[in-house]
Write a protein that binds this DNA or RNA. Structure first.
Length: 740
DNA sequence: GTGTTGAGTATTTTT
DNA sequence: TACTCAACAC
């Protein structure tokens, strides 16, 4: 491959790209091309300076960002495979897999406990310490654990700092017990991954030198969102070559609640003798969008002033949209998006952004109703679904037979007549004898040995048939992962357990199938992947890879939309109590973080921006009214008090789906759509040529209907539904099939 | 040990 | 609304 052409970079971007030696801090405003800077710098170091890709480390904040960066680099470098581009958490898993056995306390097939497993352990610890008022204790233990692990302070120091607190001794004890349980289970939580990796780098010279020598050039993206322990890791990794570049933007720091420490930027300046560069030219948004963003963020007091500018077009003024209810808001979204789409904007270039997950409900329903394909980021995550966790638990106990949370799942699903108390006995017996719970279960196959485990006979009877199945599974451990998961479904009779004909069960079976398919996919891409690596990796991924092939609208929380950009962005729920969230409203620094969220949301937009609030929103089972978000006022955009109809009329791109959809039939579209995959819809959609007036069709939710007329230029048809009346549907999108 | 019911409560945000 | 948790019945 030829030299990397750096002429596409502007002067501000070029300088830090060329400054490869030593420490570099880049403060990069939103949309100023920091990803471009990072990828070109890495490509430049490898291609133009002839540094082996093996020597490069790039740390991103999310898996999505890592994937994207790898993707871009794959077009620039032929030997990109050897670059290490990953999140902090996966970097730490890599380090731990290589070196954790030096500690003698864990094996490299350790389990990773996610938030729900962590919560369960905390709860059990709280219950053990004091059975009354444990609710409060649970929260306190949770808080203590996260402070200790995010800030990397010792338990003793924590006790000193909080020595006057009421329950401090209980909390310290609980933290000890929590860590004890995880250790016995050969398990680490997300924070442990960082802390243990750091400890290993500190304590074992071999490990430290290996990575210090290897990573000659280190890059950290989203530096404003690193926490204290992450910064410590960066510092120790860069300890030898000291070639490190960090990119960040204070105004986009939105993870304070997770321990992100803006002070890291200051510390970086004093810890390293670093050069500082600024990127202030925005290439993404129109001037009018940028103006709104700047107008909002300048209200933050604690902030270094900067001047984000653009020499692009003025563009259309962002629009403030008012609606009576969340369902009207969603109606507005559907129609406007359809209108933009009709005018040629790809759905892929459109996003609906919101403060929290529950706001997605109304838009999802409307999009389903109108057959607008969408993908949802954040929210219900695939690997967090019950049935998926249940299935994976069987694989996890093969990888790590000490994983008590998975053991308890395996014993609970499918139902075997074994309850919580029995599970506790089994695990306790294993701990006492220093063997794994799986060993105990397998031991029960030989009836004679049952005496030694001191378990009640009734329980042993229940466990024995199960033990045989587990033995079969263990014997097949060397098979491929996909074969194993099939064996699990079959041997443990998942289908039978989900045979009751409910919608819920159908969707569970569907998801289990999808899990199997995803494993096939992963095996194809990575044939050498071992079982324990697979279950570790899966824990760091929140979702299956989004389907890139279909054109669909993005619905996302603002947090998960960070780093993305779209032609058109709709920010919904701009009401006090939502953005800013009710929990932050009386804490000025919390409000500033909320304001940064607003800023991040606005700066996702390239061309069009819609800011939406409603007069009354359905939440907690009733309608609530809240004042308009202060941030909306801060944008300085002229405030039109639209009525819904006027709003609609004002938008030329507003699509008229149907002249007369009866309002009540529209709002009768009910819930339970959330597990339906948009792919299903697409599979069901049909070719317009197959339709004619008079055809009978079946709509996935609207039921049976008859085509009245077809508009071939817009690809839409008027359909008379038996129980809905007349509805205009997009033929290529609506979930319909021809029945006659 | 499991399943049902009713009360009470909750929605930030993610690796 | 929709979910969790405790109490109670079997």
């Amino acid at each position: 491959m030829s030299q990397i052409d750096l002429s596409l970079l502007n002067k501000e971007q070029l300088e830090p790209v060329m400054q490869t030696e030593g420490a570099v801090l880049v403060t990069a405003g939103a949309g100023s091309g920091k990803t471009r800077l990072l990828t070109y710098r890495i490509a430049h170091i490898v291609q133009n300076l002839n540094i082996p890709p093996w020597n490069i480390l790039a740390i991103t904040f999310t898996n999505k960002a890592a994937r994207e960066m790898k993707e871009r680099l794959s077009h620039m470098l032929y030997n990109h495979e050897q670059l290490h581009v990953s999140t902090f958490h996966s970097l730490c898993v890599t380090i731990l897999r290589k070196y954790i056995e030096l500690t003698g306390e864990y094996t490299k097939s350790f389990s990773i406990y996610d938030e729900s497993e962590r919560k369960k352990v905390i709860k059990s610890v709280a219950a053990e310490i004091c059975s009354d008022k444990k609710d409060n204790l649970t929260e306190q233990i949770d808080a203590a654990l996260s402070t200790i692990k995010n800030e990397g302070i010792s338990l003793d120091d924590y006790r000193d700092i909080h020595k006057f607190e009421y329950h401090i001794d209980d909390i310290v004890l609980a933290v000890r017990k929590y860590n004890e349980i995880l250790k016995k289970s050969n398990a680490l939580d997300f924070d442990d991954l960082l802390n243990f990796a750091f400890d290993i780098l500190v304590q074992y010279q071999e490990a430290r030198e290996f990575y210090q020598k290897r990573f000659k050039y280190i890059h950290v993206d989203e530096f404003q969102d690193t926490n204290i322990i992450q910064y410590k890791i960066v510092k120790i990794l860069a300890g030898r070559h000291k070639n490190i570049l960090v990119v960040g933007d204070e105004d986009q720091s939105i993870y304070g609640w997770r321990g992100a420490n803006i002070g890291n930027i200051r510390d970086f300046i004093s810890d390293f003798d670093c050069k500082v560069y600024k990127l202030e030219q925005n290439y993404r948004s129109t001037k009018s969008i940028l103006n709104a963003a700047n107008a909002v963020i300048k209200n933050n007091e604690s902030r270094i002033k900067k001047n984000l500018w653009s020499d692009g077009e003025e563009g259309q003024e962002p629009q403030i949209v008012s609606n009576n209810s969340d369902s009207d808001e969603a109606e507005f979204l559907a129609r406007t998006i359809k209108g933009l789409n009709n005018k040629g904007m790809l759905l892929n270039n459109i996003a609906v952004l919101m403060r929290n997950n529950f706001l997605s409900r109304a838009p999802e329903q409307k999009f389903m109703f109108y057959g607008i394909p969408y993908k949802m980021y954040g929210g219900f995550r695939f690997y967090e679904r019950r049935e998926i966790k249940d299935a994976l638990a069987y694989l996890k106990i093969l990888a790590n037979p000490f994983d008590t949370e998975s053991i308890s799942r395996v014993l609970s699903f499918p139902k075997k007549g074994i309850g919580e108390a029995s599970i506790a006995k089994l695990i306790d017996s294993a701990f006492r004898q220093g063997v794994s719970p799986v060993d105990i279960i397998l031991g029960l196959i030989n009836e004679n040995s049952s005496q030694t485990y001191d378990l009640p006979n009734s329980l042993i009877k229940k466990l024995q048939p199960f033990a045989k199945k587990i033995e079969l599974l263990v014997d097949c451990k060397e098979m491929s992962i996909s074969a194993l998961i099939r064996l699990v479904y079959k041997t443990f009779e998942f289908n039978e357990a989900l045979s009751a004909e409910t919608e819920e069960n159908e969707s569970r079976k569907e998801n289990l199938k999808e899990l199997y398919n995803s494993i096939l996919q992963i095996e194809k891409n990575n044939p050498a992947l071992s079982l324990d690596e697979y279950v570790q990796q899966i824990m760091l991924y929140s979702d299956l890879d989004a389907d890139k092939t279909s054109d669909s609208v993005t619905i996302a929380t603002i947090h998960s939309a960070k780093g993305l950009e779209f032609d058109a962005v709709f920010i919904i729920g701009l009401e006090e109590g939502i953005l800013p969230s009710s929990r932050s409203i009386d804490d000025e620094s919390a409000v500033e973080e909320e304001r940064r969220l607003m800023y991040v949301a606005i700066t996702r937009a390239r061309k069009r921006l819609f800011l939406s609030y409603v007069k009354s929103r359905f939440m907690y089972g009733k309608y609530n009214s809240a004042p308009i978000s202060r941030f909306l006022k801060e944008t300085g955009i002229y405030f039109h008090e639209f009525s819904v109809q006027k709003t609609m009329a004002k938008h030329s791109e507003y699509a008229d789906f149907s002249s007369r959809i009866r309002q009540n039939s529209v709002s009768s579209a009910n819930s339970n759509y959330k597990f339906n995959k948009i792919e299903n819809l697409i599979k069901h959609s049909i070719d317009i040529k197959l339709l004619k007036a008079g055809s009978k069709v079946m709509h996935k939710r609207l039921g049976e209907g008859k085509i009245i007329s077809i508009n071939y230029s817009t690809n839409e048809a008027d359909v008379e539904f038996n129980n809905m009346g007349k509805v205009t549907l997009s033929i290529s999108l609506a979930p319909i099939t021809i029945i006659e």
